[in-house]
Design a protein around this nucleic acid. Structure first.
Lengths: 125, 125
DNA sequence: GTTTATGCAAATTCTTTGCAATACT
DNA sequence: AGTATTGCAAAGAATTTGCATAAAC
């Protein structure tokens, strides 16, 4: 149960996401905060922020983890089901501001989804 | 350019997929063929079968690779864009026989997609 | 003072590479 | 014979674990 403590790590990580509404890869965060935070700490804080509904995670096509800010999620209600777009050229991952309707699948109850499109992004287009 | 040779590895791997229309994880294949094939070979043959349009790959929620038989793909035409369903209980990945319409996204040309739903599968439901 | 977070080193998991030996046509 | 495939060992990338130290409440 997460009483979040105000730590340096938390502050530094949140700052990275304040200026970025799209996704940032863990690899990138480790590099950026290299001199200030240990990578283990980064993994752990991100995990906690996801649990608490502050960030959501995305898996890239290569299988690496990315995180982006949530919009209207909380600890009890995770509703960030929007699709993402990965640029096949520069590798950047964007959140798509698109409604996505989860289909009804017989005999299965869909709880969550990962929708990732690939192609060239706006900058590389 | 793939002139596919009839090798023991190819035969053994294809046999695994003949009886299974859903996805099989690479980890699982390595285990199954443990005594007969080297894991490196397995990775390489699967990669080739994907290039040739015989199999398609799926990334699980954990970032591990799975493969499943294609339906009507060829070396030049990969059209296996159906969604997949990963069971949050047993981990199995199924191909969903559902039409999926790729949305039109402004300023981006979508080339491919990965659609993965999660929840309980038919058996675990 | 007690609980939670951090850093470090090492372990784990999955996948890829290099290269010599072997199998296929 | 010539080219593609295989096995093995080792390297690589990303992530996780254990534990002693430090910071937050």
């Amino acid at each position: 149960m997460g009483i979040i403590r105000k730590t340096k790590s938390l502050e530094l990580l949140l700052k990275e996401f304040q200026n970025e509404k799209n996704a940032i890869s863990v690899i990138d965060l480790i590099e950026r905060l290299n001199s200030k935070l240990n990578k283990t700490t980064i993994y752990r804080v991100l995990e906690k922020l996801e649990e608490d509904g502050v960030l959501h995670s995305i898996l890239s096509n290569r299988g690496t983890k990315w995180y982006a800010r949530c919009n209207g999620c909380s600890e009890s209600n995770h509703n960030d089901l929007h699709p993402h777009f990965e640029c096949s050229n520069c590798g950047k991952i964007d959140c798509l501001n698109i409604e996505f309707q989860i289909p009804i699948i017989p005999n299965r109850n869909v709880r969550s989804s990962q929708i990732l499109f690939q192609g060239k992004c706006e900058a590389c287009f």
